[in-house]
Design a protein around this nucleic acid. Structure first.
Lengths: 142, 142
DNA sequence: CAACAGTTTAGAATAGTTATAATGTAGTTT
DNA sequence: AAACTACATTATAACTATTCTAAACTGTTG
């Protein structure tokens, strides 16, 4: 479980000033032993409930984007109007439960390594992401 | 190249009334020989320019969602605030060019069939989608 | 501690999408 | 073919997630 000084290092070493707000957000995001998924509004809610503290919504957005750009968070795009973020920045894939809109990490053994055989785009591959959508069998079509 | 009567059948057989507006949208979406990707605003623009006609934006949204729910269109989620739709409803994957935000179909030979070895969710797999993000090599981190 | 660049903030602005409620229309019944 | 009914369309308002703005504040450097 990282200490506060580790968060300061983490921020400094990625060129971000360790402000009070960013350190609070680090506590909420990186102080647990398990990684997890969240939306911006989840996070804002957690900050005010868990820490009993108020951080401007704009700052929450700024910080999450800064963390994402520095590689401390990953953004996962699902078919939804909201973005999900993931504190697990290792390479992995996801299940999306369409009944609950919940995102679930795939363990490494769920899918074999994906080999892109022909990249005809002439550009460099930045990432290869798999999303497995699941739902109850009796689920009606939307 | 499908004729108008085929669109009427297509709509009727999926339980949608063949209205003037829906037939116009069918023309724009399904009358070409190639499949393509579009956003709602692309489509609205095409309708007014290509057909020199006005369809209410609400109707464009309703129709695209109806077509999607009936399986005539697929929705592709990329990391963006906008949704892309695809007239290619066969199973396939995508490249996303991060320089241009353009979506490019993967041919079947780009990726081997993906085998989900462990589905621990206890639910039925509805889809397995791969998104390969590409960019110029010299691209700066955002 | 002065100076400055980076950060935070509340609130306004924006963009994409959905809801509303009145009007119109396709298909069915008589 | 008139009447009926359920489904569609429409303009516009409302909503939601996100970004912008510009003023106030703060961490860092010299």
């Amino acid at each position: 479980m990282p200490k506060n000084s580790e968060f300061i290092d983490k921020l400094r070493s990625s060129g971000l000033r360790p402000t009070k707000q960013r350190l609070k957000i680090c506590e909420v995001l990186f102080k647990r032993d398990k990684t997890f998924h969240f939306t911006i509004s989840d996070l804002a809610k957690n900050i005010s409930e868990q820490l009993n503290q108020k951080i401007s919504l704009a700052t929450v957005y700024n910080t999450v984007h800064a963390f994402k750009n520095k590689g401390h968070l990953k953004e996962i795009s699902i078919n939804s109007s909201q973005s999900y973020f993931d504190t697990n920045i290792t390479h992995h894939h996801h299940f999306l439960d369409e009944d609950t809109n919940e995102l679930i990490d795939c363990d490494n053994d769920v899918i074999e390594k994906i080999n892109v055989k022909n990249n005809l785009t002439g550009k460099k591959i930045k990432s290869v992401e798999v999303l497995i959508k699941v739902a109850s069998d009796n689920q009606n079509q939307k």
